[in-house]
Design a protein around this nucleic acid. Structure first.
Lengths: 147, 147
DNA sequence: TAAAATATGGACTTTTTAAGTCCACATTAA
DNA sequence: TTAATGTGGACTTAAAAAGTCCATATTTTA
């Protein structure tokens, strides 16, 4: 029961990308964030595929956000980086639960699972950004700390 | 990011034990719950060590709860079965976080972690028991929790 | 147009953890 | 005494996470 490095790396990368004006390349992300480049490449692919970022190919290429930070929930990133696997095997792997619908534990597991996924749903990339970067730029000047 | 089988097995076993009047043996727990006996034995040891159950050794031995179900939180069981490992590496493994206290993500991870642990803290073994079995047990035999 | 810098796709390897097994031993009711 | 139980620890296996590699496609720019 642990958050994967993939998720951590993905979040960290997205923060960098969100803060960048230009497409941010793999090499730079990897160096700044101290994450193995080849592995990160794989993670970025899933983010592209998942519609969280767009990639710009070729020289001067890199990645840009495809949605605004407040619309990227931690849950979305989690779903992409950790595949479709569910939190609680017994309520997701039908063939496993020998007790089926009569199991008194199932309903509780479902609640626990919901509480956890909710925790990931209500945090967005925006919450992960440093305050000063949130408003982007206005008149060429960084906006001040507002919320 | 998935609940381990160990936790599932532990919870399932504890439900059986809670429903039994007498010490409930490994063999019976393992058979009723369809869990590998040798593996379960290992799990039970950690539960004994963790003060959740007491063991009765020798013939007619088995396990009994050491606390009432409402005082056994899912979180306690989790802590025992999954060791001390923390949910989010970056906030628990000091040496890993190159960004240290300046990291804007850390505070959010801490919130997420708290939300998750809270979810496990507020559920107790009592919530996992079938309603009808909470108070009473019939004719000296362990009731199966499946009706 | 050639070269350099980038992303892509997929196969592959390594490392780590979870899951499971085994066996010799200790304890106790019958 | 013996059969049924739990204990302790070493061990093995299986699965998943983490990481690597290479050949290829795309685009900028010298």
């Amino acid at each position: 029961m642990q958050v994967s490095k993939s998720l951590e790396y993905a979040v960290r990368s997205l923060v960098f990308i969100a803060e960048s004006e230009k497409p941010l390349g793999l090499s730079e992300i990897s160096q700044t964030g101290r994450m193995p480049k080849a592995y990160l490449a794989k993670i970025m692919r899933t983010l592209v595929e998942g519609g969280v970022v767009s990639s710009v190919r070729g020289r001067k290429g890199g990645y840009v956000l495809k949605k605004v930070p407040k619309d990227i929930a931690l849950y979305d990133i989690l779903s992409l980086t950790e595949g479709k696997e569910k939190l609680i095997p017994c309520i997701n792997d039908g063939k496993f639960c020998y007790a089926s619908s009569f199991c008194s534990q199932k309903v509780v597991w479902i609640k626990v699972e919901k509480a956890i996924t909710d925790a990931f749903k209500k945090v967005t990339l925006k919450d992960m950004l440093p305050r000063r970067a949130i408003g982007k730029v206005k008149n060429g000047r960084a906006q001040n700390y507002i919320s």
